[in-house]
Every structure is written in structure tokens, then in C-alpha cells.
Nucleic acid binder design. Structure first.
Length: 402
DNA sequence: GTCAATTCACATGAAAGAGACCACGGTCTAGTG
DNA sequence: CTAGACCGTGGTCTCTTTCATGTGAATTGACGA
């Protein structure tokens, strides 16, 4: 229905650039997945026994973002559940959980609760002891003979937050089940993730492993061409646009998602400025717009204390004579700002962590340096590009009502 | 001049507290027959 | 008698604080040449 509506609206708006923009959206599932035949086959052959209701090996999938991991696994599992439905036997359930989604599945409890909810049971979002949730889970699935295939996407994020013990519990759950069987498919962005796991978990979880290599520029081009032909109207794309997009994305470790984003945003930009052609310049604009939006989004959605700290950093780096900023400076400035704004100041310990988090987010670049007798600190550089700073300032001033 | 000890200013860890949520079970209250 | 309102308890989760320990090189100061 929404697709239909979109089409109507688009045609009314005299849409000349896009034919079907949704093709470029991240949640779009394409009909075919180029350059991933090998991986799809591998996944399929590992998961195939589930069709007979047999337990399948736990599978572990690595690969950088935008290499099609999630897509392939979802594709295969969809096909399998389709097959199962055709045969009419109810022997398999596939549950997909994205562990990175905050407030949904980023703790042991919530992941479990999410799984149960997907299975049709109901579990409150909070309030129950974890082991009683486990019992409920067992009760729910062990009623009959079946295979539960749990796909844990971005599993590295989850483990980083909550230790690997829950994976261990999950893999060990099979011994408590009389009828049902659980298999786990873990999807991870980090290639070194497996090394950091507890050896017991590693051996039980990593029965099968699969690596998704990044796409190279040529492959990206093909993917883009395919999608672009569906997404854009004829003759919109200028020469070299696709190639440029692919090149950009290939630089970012072959991230196809990034490439598609780039193309979409470029299209939107062209549309908004009323240009009837999508040329190479637009890609550059789109690239910087994506970067900018990403940063501003992060800044805006940050909690108050984080914003205060960031504001302190920004004020300091605006000051010309401060060519190097250290943690101590930030803390002093931060305290001063808190006093002025009647906010309560956090401890230095906490601020130190906040600074570290900004570093992770890429808003700043922090390097631990030792200055001899002057101690050890982080040397901090603000990474916001010039064209973002003013806007960022505005956002901060607004939300902190300075 | 050389070399180890010292020292600074935090980094980094671990543990525990505060406060917000929430479920569950028991008790109380008001409405109903 | 019963449904719903209203606690109290016990659980999770996030953000912090408190207490402890770690750390890399400039500086110091003792030592020997």
C-alpha cells in the first residue's frame, strides 16, 4: 500500500529523478544478490539440515559492514522457512535479532525477551529475574520437536557490552532441551571478535565459519548499476557517477550500503535543487552531506552531560592559543560551564570516559600521551570539519539553552 | 655525564550506589448481586 | 463476592561515584669518571 501511495505522490510531485527511491533505501531487499553466490551456497548448505528438523551447526559469519552478511543470511533463512511452510511441517523457526538496537536487544535479558516475543510468547520489557526468563524460554520451545534458528546480528556489539557468558548459556541450553534444538547464527562486523571469546564459547559457537570479503570497486559498480536502473529514471545518471560512487565506497572497505546511500542522497540533492541530471559533482556533495548529517545527528541525540563536555571541547579548540587540549583543560572548562549553566558537574573519572566515547564516535581524536613529569593525559583534537562546527554549536547552545 | 628512582596527571579497572522502570503478589476499597 | 486500585518487594538497566591501581617519560639526585 505504501509503495503505491509513494508512487502516486511521486508522480504528482513531477518526480523526474527517481522512479522508485525505495530500491536505494537500506531496508530494501533486492531480488538477487550479485557476487555472493559462493557465500549463499555455503550458508545454505550449512543450514539445509534444518529442513528435516535436524539441528544444524552453529554458524559464524564475519565481514565488514555493507558486505552483505545480513542480506545473505536473511535471504537463505527466508528461503528455508518458505520451503518449510510448503511442506507443511512445522519443524523450524527462524528468529532474527539485531543485538545493536538500543532498548530492544542490547542486554542479555532483552535479547532473550526479544527472542521469546518473536516466538509468540510474551515477556515484559523488564522486571523479571533473568533465570526465570530462561525457564520461560525453555518451556516455550521445548513443547515439541523443532529446530530454533537464532540469528544474532551484530553479535560483537552485544558481547562487548555484556560479556560472552550469555552465549555460553545459550549454547549449553541444548543439553536441557528434550525435544527442541537450538542453533545459533552469529553475524559479526569485527574479524577479531572470535579471538576475544572464551575458548569454550569459541569452540561451541564456531562450528562453522564464513568470511565475507569486501566488495571491490568493480563489483560495487555492478551492484550500483543494477539498483540504479530500478531506482532512477532513464537518462538521469551522467557518465561516471556510478564509478565515482563505487570508488568512494571501495575506499570505505567496500561498503555497499554506503555506496547506495551515496547514490540516494545525491539523487535527493539533485531533486531538491531542481537539477534534472545527476552528475559527478553531486556525489561529492552527497558524501559531505552524509558525513555532516551523521555527526550532527550524533551530537543532537547525545545526553546533556555529553553535550556539556563536547561544548567545553569546542570552546577550547576555538581558542587560538590552545593548540593542544588535554583532559585537565577540558575538565576545568567543563566545570566552569556547569557553574554558569547551573548544571551539576560530574567527576573527572566520568568525564574521562565521556571523552573516550567521543573518541570512539570519531567526533574527536584522542591520543594518550605522556608528558613526563607533567603526567599522562589524552591529547585531544576536535575532528568536526569546519562546515559542521557552526551548526554543531547552534545545536548545543539550543539544547543546553545557554 | 649516566642511570635508576621519583613523580606527575591522568588513564584504566572494579565495585558499588542511586534512581528509573517494571512485574508480581498481597491487601484494601468500592461497586455489585 | 469480585474487579480494580494501591502498596511493597524484588528484579533489571543506566549513569555515576568511590576507591584502587597502572603508567610513560621528564626530572631529580646520587654516583662515578
Amino acid at each position: 500500500m505504501t509503495v503505491k501511495l509513494n508512487k502516486i505522490f511521486d508522480s504528482i510531485a513531477g518526480n523526474i529523478i527517481f522512479r522508485d527511491k525505495s530500491v536505494l533505501q537500506i531496508n530494501h531487499t533486492p531480488g538477487s544478490i550479485p557476487h555472493r553466490d559462493e557465500q549463499i551456497e555455503a550458508v545454505a548448505s550449512i543450514l539445509a539440515p534444518s529442513l528435516r528438523g535436524d539441528r544444524v551447526s552453529n554458524l559464524f559469519v564475519y565481514g565488514k559492514t555493507g558486505t552483505g552478511k545480513t542480506l545473505c543470511v536473511q535471504y537463505v533463512t527466508n528461503e528455508i522457512s518458505k520451503r518449510v511452510k510448503e511442506t507443511g511441517e512445522d519443524v523450524l523457526k527462524v528468529i532474527y535479532v539485531n543485538c545493536k538496537l538500543k532498548k530492544v536487544a542490547d542486554t542479555e535479558y532483552r535479547i532473550l525477551a526479544e527472542i521469546i516475543n518473536r516466538l509468540g510468547g510474551s515477556v515484559p520489557a523488564t522486571g523479571l529475574p533473568t533465570d526465570s526468563v530462561y525457564n520461560k524460554f525453555i518451556e516455550l520451545i521445548d513443547g515439541k520437536k523443532q529446530v530454533i534458528l537464532i540469528v544474532l546480528d551484530e553479535i560483537d556489539q552485544a558481547v562487548k557490552k555484556i560479556s560472552d557468558s550469555f552465549l555460553y548459556t545459550l549454547t549449553r541450553l541444548n543439553s536441557e532441551l528434550k525435544n527442541a534444538q537450538i542453533s545459533i547464527v552469529g553475524i559479526s562486523n569485527s574479524l577479531t571478535f572470535m579471538d576475544e571469546l572464551d575458548p569454550r564459547v569459541r569452540s561451541s559457537l564456531g562450528e562453522e565459519e564464513l568470511v565475507f570479503p569486501p566488495y571491490n570497486a568493480l563489483q560495487l559498480q555492478e551492484i550500483l548499476k543494477k539498483r540504479a536502473s530500478e531506482a532512477f529514471n532513464e537518462g538521469i545518471l551522467s557518465e561516471g557517477v556510478i564509478a565515482k560512487c563505487a570508488a568512494f565506497a571501495a575506499r570505505e572497505h567496500g561498503d555497499a550500503r554506503r555506496a547506495l546511500d551515496l547514490l540516494r542522497v545525491a539523487g535527493e540533492l539533485a531533486e531538491r535543487s531542481g537539477i534534472k541530471k545527476l552528475d559527478v559533482v553531486r556525489i561529492d556533495e552527497a558524501n559531505s552531506k552524509i558525513e555532516k548529517d551523521k555527526m550532527l545527528d550524533i551530537i543532537e541525540s547525545e545526553p546533556k552531560q555529553f553535550q556539556l563536555v563536547l561544548f567545553a571541547i569546542m570552546s577550547l579548540s576555538q581558542d587560538e592559543k590552545m593548540n593542544k587540549i588535554f583532559t585537565g583543560d577540558i575538565y576545568n572548562k567543563y566545570e566552569e560551564i556547569c557553574r554558569k549553566t547551573k548544571n551539576e558537574a560530574l567527576t573527572q573519572r566520568r568525564v574521562s570516559d565521556i571523552v573516550a566515547e567521543f573518541d570512539m564516535l570519531g567526533l574527536i581524536n584522542a591520543k594518550v600521551v605522556s608528558k613526563g613529569r607533567q603526567g599522562r593525559t589524552r591529547e585531544i583534537k576536535l575532528m568536526l570539519p569546519e562546515n559542521v562546527r557552526n551548526k554543531a554549536r547552534e545545536i548545543l547552545i539550543e539544547s543546553l539553552n545557554l
